[in-house]
Design a protein around this nucleic acid. Sequence first.
DNA 1: CTGGATCCATTGTGATACTG
DNA 2: CAGTATCACAATGGATCCAG
Lengths: 128, 128
Amino acid sequence: MRYERKIPIPIECGLHLTKEVLGGKWKMSLINAIHAGIKRPARIEQAFPTLTKRVLSRQLKELEAHGIISKEIFPQLPPKVEYSLTPLGASLLPIIDMMDNWGNENRSFLEKVIEETRLMVEIGNHAH
Amino acid sequence: MRYERKIPIPIECGLHLTKEVLGGKWKMSLINAIHAGIKRPARIEQAFPTLTKRVLSRQLKELEAHGIISKEIFPQLPPKVEYSLTPLGASLLPIIDMMDNWGNENRSFLEKVIEETRLMVEIGNHAH
DNA sequence: CTGGATCCATTGTGATACTG
DNA sequence: CAGTATCACAATGGATCCAG
């Protein structure tokens, strides 16, 4: 990711610690997928067609380094790898579920306002 | 923020809708602060010394556009503004609480692995 | 099949000066 | 006091090629 971070994370707050772990674009989806039994990189790629290999690799690597998932390497040719949730990773599932539910419960409203926000912000600036 | 987004959000999933709303660096902290009664921009600035005015303005504006907070303008000089949570915004509080708690419960471990991850990722690349 | 290397595009944030 | 304009840059993601 980076050799040395220039902008520090405000870790005084638990929120920012959790955000550092779950913040990547696909990390929560990856945790869900692994929990659902989609444990091998090739299968995860199939499950998320717009997720590229590079990003997948990096986010898995970070999740592993953060102690959220563990990696089992089968010494075969071709290589085989399986990821699993650690207990710490599993303890995130309730949070992820709540977020997924909240988004789904408010889907129609959110899709509308998110779309409107695109058109709003920084356009007013052009009409100065 | 931007005129037109080039990289689409995968909104098929509720997770990404929620992430779009809560994803900004300070948004969850802002929701907490407003809920705790810190409702005016100047006071929020005091509460978060490393949060700059520009970012504060933008994230408040987006939260408002997303229907999470509402803005009351008192026609005075100097101007006075107060933000409040909408019911939709208040419905996010349990999620934010869970994330805050999870981070605090695992603080010592997380601080360690987050720090280690900095040093690990992309350094192995230099030693190729 | 897994995953690193390289290069580039996009998005998000920090700093400052300024206006009403 | 609240908020925008402008600039610069950090952080993250995407595309492609390559190696074991």
